[in-house]
Design a protein around this nucleic acid. Structure first.
Lengths: 343, 343
DNA sequence: GTGAAAGCGCTAACAT
DNA sequence: ATGTTAGCGCTTTCAC
């Protein structure tokens, strides 16, 4: 392995001069710099990034820790988020360190190792839960971090985050259903410890309430964020409340499972029952039937998280460090907009 | 930041002893070890990973460089591969360093920086192209690496890789179509520089040839790996060769685009024209109509790449370092198995 | 069983 | 414009 010492020897200059020539310092003569750079190329010198990191006390790397146990990855959300993160980080010449840890490991350990171990300049936290211990830890150690999502509505979100306004999103889609004649609308939520669960419930409850419909706890089901959760939810809801004409699901994958369950129970989605999702798939248009969903700018969230984080790292955070992005209602076939319409 | 020095001071032992106590050396007395470990926990000591890496000359990190320019991420393949990689790496207590670089940057630079810069113990190379310069570079510097995919069939694959036997996969699906009466079958390929393109072409050509059908160059179209490529391909093929009854697409996303184009041209997929994909989506079952596809064990590939790479890094590579995994034909509605059948 | 000292490869004061 | 020197925080001989 050729190091800076070899390069210094080869060029006849000192290590210092070589280092500064390569770093474009102005106090190195143009010829010297050119010569050194040329020689570096010739002998294939590549600075040892680890040594540089140790010395400069920064890594130009952003961290992202993924909990593998809950199948985050297969939700699509994570993939798209990572896509945005990767692109924006690349543009800013940052790398991304991913650490996936399974349930056995204490999740917080991973954060301590990565953050306390000086491996990253900042960290992106995703999939917030209620009273998230990771947020508490990062606030305590004072390491730069940004959060995809928020804490639950009853907690004070005193940290930089970017979230989608899912309460408004669920409100809009529920209202849409109501406007098209639905009165008995079910809701399939994620597990209660997921931070955004309560925002979803509120948006749904508000829409019902504003339309003079009573919120009923039995119309709400909590399931895992995968197809299975949607399947179980729809099965349960239709089993106990066969008069429901619509069900709002917390993500597209669950909506697919819900549609499957509805079909298994003899309901035609889009005719007997409306099913809506919450953006998660790369493209819910080609689902069968095409899925009505609340679109979230996931890729955009990833990009902006990185910009925000880098701003914080470099000491020039933007005015706005708590950002709520709007959703967009995409109405497609599964919505069954004709149900109850005019009679 | 609390370092080993502070811990040494606090416990009254030397830095050396502290280091060894934490590393479970046997020549530290049990009580000393317990005491040091306890104190470490109390004052929140976290070893500086960067310093440790510099000293030990390894990082316990695997690298993955993603070319952002060709939308690799949105192909689904990458997401699933990364999922497998992340899980397996996590299980082996390795982190994953992701570097996404856009076209402006010389791609090879990223490899040199990451590999030459000692940031990773091994690197995973994906999306191989014909005469891939990255493979040449990695072979030359002798850094541990594994490849997802192979070089083109006319190159010597003298490096560890895991690929799917796409030639056999395409052969199988083409044969399936032929068995169900199709005689005029189109093929939509990726751009020619993608390494596996020729395997696909061969599988397709072999199936035709074995059935006594002449390979026709005009039935083959090359397009980008996204929906647009499939759309253009199908549009072009049906435009020039309206008698085609089936089209094989190189991935599911392209197949979706192809189905869309067929529908735009007034063809009913599954009745007038059969469309088949090559596994890429998280679940092609819910496409409309449900997509016939050649399933690849993508997640599995990711996992095995990591196992293989770690084996190489640690000096105990398995017997088999060039692995071809089988595909599985999944027949669904879009296949139109009734076409030409018995009539 | 424990400590002193060298050094991983680099950067950045501080000389000159 | 260039060189000397002191670390960054840790691991690992080597002594005792």
């Amino acid at each position: 392995m050729v190091g800076i010492k070899e390069l210094a020897q080869k060029t006849g200059f000192s290590i210092t001069t070589v280092s500064r020539a390569l770093a474009e310092y102005s106090d190195v003569s143009a010829e010297t710099r050119a010569f050194i750079r040329q020689t570096a190329r010739e002998i294939g010198y590549q600075p040892n990034e680890v040594a540089r990191q140790l010395r400069r006390q920064r890594s130009n790397t952003l961290g992202l820790i993924i909990p593998t146990y809950d199948h985050s990855f297969s939700e699509g959300f994570f993939s798209q988020l990572l896509h945005g993160i990767g692109d924006a980080a690349g543009d800013a010449r940052y790398d991304v360190l991913i650490s996936a840890r399974s349930p056995g490991d204490d999740e917080l350990e991973a954060y301590k190792r990565i953050v306390g171990g000086n491996r990253v300049d900042g960290i992106i936290l995703a999939r917030t839960r209620q009273h998230d211990p990771r947020i508490a830890y990062l606030k305590q150690v004072g390491h730069p971090f940004v959060v995809s999502g928020r804490t639950a509505p009853d907690e004070i979100p005193d940290f930089p985050y970017i979230d989608v306004d899912s309460q408004a999103g669920i409100y809009a889609v529920t209202q849409h259903l109501i406007a098209h004649g639905h009165r008995q609308i079910g809701l399939i939520l994620p597990p209660p410890d997921v931070a955004y669960t309560d925002y979803r419930r509120r948006g749904y409850a508000d829409a019902l309430s504003d339309a003079g419909i009573a919120y009923q706890n039995e119309w709400v089901f909590s399931g895992d964020l995968r197809r299975s959760g949607g399947y179980q939810g729809m099965y349960h809801l239709l089993d106990h409340h066969p008069t429901l004409t619509a069900v709002v699901c917390s993500n597209d994958l669950m909506a697919l499972g819900a549609m499957q369950a509805a079909q298994a129970l003899g309901r035609i989605v889009g005719r007997d029952i409306a099913v809506v999702g919450f953006d998660d798939l790369f493209d819910a248009e080609y689902a069968h039937p095409p899925l009505t969903t609340v679109r979230q700018p996931i890729y955009e969230i990833g990009r902006r998280l990185v910009d925000l984080l880098i701003g914080i790292i470099q000491g020039h955070p933007p005015q706005e460090t708590q950002i709520l992005l709007p959703t967009e209602l995409i109405v497609r076939e599964s919505c069954g907009t004709h149900i109850g319409k005019g009679g």
